[in-house]
Amino acid sequence: MSGRSTWTTFWRTVCGRAYPRVIGAQRERSWVFFEILLPLLQVTAYVFIYRAIQAPPEFLGFVVLGGAMSAYWLNVLWSMASQLYWEKETGNLELYIVAPTSRMAILLGMALGGMFQTTLRAVAIITIGSLLFRVPMTVTNVPVLLGVFLTTLVALYGLGMMLSSLFLLFGREAWHFSNLLQEPVSLVSGFYFPVRALGQVIAAAASALPITLGLDAMRQLLFPSMMENLRFLSADVELGILAGSAVLFLVLAHRALAHFEKLARREGRLTVRGQ
């Protein structure tokens, strides 16, 4: 195949795999409702905890932002990491493997579609949460905020692409592992409180997850006065680390996909269903 036609196939695959997430998912309105409602219920409960203990209003903003970013983490877990497991269960994985295209293009399409789909939910959560709880946000530097947000997403979905290769080997445990990675990650990444409260050592370890640094940096840029004494690292340093993580996770995802696909083929796990 010529270089040009390889690229054409790559991008057509990316678009083809992103399509059901960008267009198809919007057709199921009830899912849009549930995907906004469920994080909002959690966010609301945590907002009332802070209200009960008379926390400063910025903490309500921490919760709303954490709730919005949790939508991305849930999307990475359930629609990236576990996706190849679902595809195996529904019989699509074989079709992906025999299709004359790059598996990275399929993962990239899933990631881009997932980002778009989740951004609609996250925007809804932030808008409803901010209006409902009157969150006092001050955007100090829009370009840096956008940069942090986008770099966090690239790193996060790179991690998701890497995990999806690992999950190729999983049977039923894929579901359990995704389930397991919800609350513990909410805890160590500081979804509902500044991560510094966990102590420097745990916060540093949790920085391996891009969402930890992304959240801390975004909070600094949205609630500068409150975060002055609560920040983990400065937003600039966090942005630099996030950029490095983004590249690292994409490279690792590429290698992991090749390695685990080979392993899954050898062990005959690509077509095993109902495990």
Binding site: I53, F59, E173, Q182, E183, P184, F191, Y192, A197
Partner: peptide
Amino acid sequence: WADPFVFAIYSLVKPLAGALILVFMYAAIA
């Protein structure tokens, strides 16, 4: 789906993490 040790960790980590989120929310503010 897992050996007993992994299953025990799985069964405990999730609820304990949920409880610790509350602990740190209180520790950060109250």
